[in-house]
């Protein structure tokens, strides 16, 4: 067992590479079942009357796109299916192209047949610097931070935002968050003081931080790829046109996650075996 104690960590890295890459390349799929916290978000969007105003903040950067983009896509698709009007924004400077990508690929791409119009059915507010200060400001005045949309059109000239004074005029807030500023700041400066319904999507690392806010300050949470996969399954059950592999990115990513988790368990066991073997006689201290 001496080899275990001196194991070069590059072997561990190689094992992890194989655990993630092989299921992805072989397109292995595992079934998923939506959990209550995901269903809370799904039902809220489902129950809102058609034409409700939903704000989606893309608070992440390309580094966490692999983990968060599938849930962002699923939420935008759900809003399109329900004909909700979307106000899209980001608190992260490198999140702006991600918003634009969601618009071009989903709203103007997959749902081109609906003829959704910028300004009437959705508005891209873009990015404003200031982090949590942006949330604090738009809580009282949307125009103080965003006098125009990302294309430079005054908000008063857009049918969707003409009647929106501040966050309180929106029916649901959604933050897809990878850190700061993100879910915690939306809870602290929007949902908590203004008593607004807030749903969040978060990375796996950030998700435990969201649980204490449920259910009063957060109505639900989509935790990482698993949360997104559950949402995609719920969406597929309600809208069969979305139950196809091309619209279920997160479900596809659950098999690599399964094998990576199993590898980590095996490594923990091996690490303990190595420690047990090398422990001096005389028992546990």
């Amino acid at each position: 067992m001496a080899w275990l104690q001196t194991l070069d960590r590059r072997w561990i890295f190689l094992a992890m590479l194989l655990a993630v890459a092989l299921p992805q390349l072989l397109q292995v799929r595992v079934p998923e079942k939506p959990t209550p916290l995901v269903l809370n978000v799904f039902r809220k969007i489902e129950e809102l009357p058609e034409g409700s105003r939903v704000l989606i903040s893309f608070d992440y950067s390309p580094s966490s796109e692999g983990e968060l983009a599938p849930m962002a896509a699923a939420l935008v698709r759900h809003c399109c299916e329900k004909r909700h009007r979307m106000v899209l924004m980001t608190l992260w400077p490198d999140g702006k192209p991600l918003v634009e990508r969601a618009i071009s690929r989903i709203i103007e791409g997959e749902y081109a047949a609906l003829g959704l119009q910028a300004g009437r059915d959705y508005v891209n507010l873009g990015y404003r610097p200031g982090k949590e200060v942006v949330i604090k400001t738009i809580a009282t005045s949307l125009r103080a931070e965003f006098p125009t949309d990302d294309a430079g059109t005054p908000l008063d000239d857009l049918p969707l935002t003409a009647e929106v004074t501040n966050l309180q005029d929106l029916d649901l807030l959604i933050s897809i968050s990878a850190g700061f500023p993100g879910l915690k700041e939306w809870v602290q400066y929007a949902s908590s003081p203004l008593k607004l319904p807030l749903a969040v999507g978060a990375t796996a690392v950030q998700a435990p931080q969201a649980y204490p806010y449920i259910p009063r300050q957060l109505l639900g949470i989509l935790a990482a790829v698993k949360g997104a996969a559950e949402y995609e399954v719920a969406l597929g059950e309600r809208y069969p046109n979305l139950a196809i592999p091309e619209r279920q990115d997160a479900v596809r990513r659950m098999a690599p996650q399964l094998w990576a988790h199993l590898l980590i368990i095996a490594l923990i066991v091996l690490g303990n075996v190595a420690a047990l073997v090398s422990r001096p006689r005389g028992g546990v201290r």
């Binding site: 009647e163 004074t165 501040n166 005029d169």
Partner: peptide
């Protein structure tokens, strides 16, 4: 004039 969705029984006029 404010256009409001169905199922809504309250509104805060902030203007």
């Amino acid at each position: 004039v404010f256009e409001l969705p169905y199922g809504v029984g309250q509104f805060v006029d902030r203007q």
